[in-house]
Design a protein around this nucleic acid. Sequence first.
DNA 1: ACCTTATACATAGTTTATCTATGGAAAGAT
DNA 2: ATCTTTCCATAGATAAACTATGTATAAGGT
Lengths: 112, 112
Amino acid sequence: MGKESTKGPLMPGTLEMLVLKTLTRGPLHGYGIAQYIRQVSDDVLRVEEGSLYPALQRLQIKGWVTSEWDVTGNNRRARYYRLTPLGRKQLAAESAAYNRITEAIARVMNPA
Amino acid sequence: MGKESTKGPLMPGTLEMLVLKTLTRGPLHGYGIAQYIRQVSDDVLRVEEGSLYPALQRLQIKGWVTSEWDVTGNNRRARYYRLTPLGRKQLAAESAAYNRITEAIARVMNPA
DNA sequence: ACCTTATACATAGTTTATCTATGGAAAGAT
DNA sequence: ATCTTTCCATAGATAAACTATGTATAAGGT
């Protein structure tokens, strides 16, 4: 009866990068971040709230993002997260590291 | 003074896939598996022994590999791991899942 | 003979990130 | 009234990788 669960676990270590990337489009609240990532990834990447909110706290502590309470278009209170300049640098670094590693994995998986 | 450490952490969840893939070339011992992955990845992926040996035990328990003691070309005793047919199927499944996820990540990181 | 390096296996304990499972609260629709 | 959706948040469990450590032997240099 239920629908088939597409099942979409995240690769540990990629969540922070995806969140930072999402915030380059502008400030957004947690729920919106989760929805955006899920939609853009065609429902493959599912960001669980139990993973997201702790991650957002970590990002804030490290200074990659700031946050403030605001109101959504739905007239709901929500905490909006905003990328800091430091966060932007971090995103570039993480993105480069990610590419380096996935390319290395590709060399193992598809040897010449 | 030491050499620059290239630093190459693995993405959690990829180690088993890389090991299974390595064993498609033929039976090999743990130390050799680590060396192979490191070399083919151009020193980007470093397989720590503290990660590898527990992983090999997990693979064996699940039936993806078997093992037996043998002697290397260096005249040393070593435990050789061999991919099972089940392991080969598992590799195909993990590889497909990995591609699905990395492609989804790419959609988030490089939106059209 | 001795010492060092490289090879080879293995475990214990820590860290860290994600997940599951909950819980609360308010808006809007039926 | 009640239900669904939106939105936040935490506690506890799970799992994979890491660091550190220990053992042992072969080969090669001095």
